[in-house]
Amino acid sequence: MAKTKTADTICLTLYQRSLLPKIVRLATAGVASKAGFNLDEADDLQTALEELLRLHLAEDNPPGGNLCIRYSFFSDRLEIITRSIPRNFLDGANKIDRYARFILEKVADRVEESPIPDGEFEVKIVKNLPVHG
């Protein structure tokens, strides 16, 4: 992928609570709209983020633990990096991880996972901007 300058970045730092998926869905809808995605594509991004959040919330992390989501706008794509996912789910060690990986890979153009301190992971979701006629 050709390197392109980041146009803008939005960061969300959220406490993990059961309402997080709702908040993140709303924020992602707004971000996707600003990026130029249509409703189908915006829904894809919302689905991807929701699945990641569910993984995060399912791990019984201590209350108050932060989840950080960074939306980066590029001319040809939107990148969303989510920290801190509690395990390397892309390995597909169990059914839930395989399910999450399947969904994410279907709705995003690229999904990458990198280790961060404290044994956690950050997940980058890339969705290319389509050229609408």
Partner: peptide
């Protein structure tokens, strides 16, 4: 023949993009 984006629906309905997103959610 394709899905609209939020801005297109906002224009169509003469409401703000925020109102479209609020309605969708």
């Amino acid at each position: 023949g394709r899905s609209p984006n939020v801005a297109e629906i906002a224009r169509e309905m003469s409401i703000s993009e925020e109102e479209v997103i609020e309605g969708l959610e």
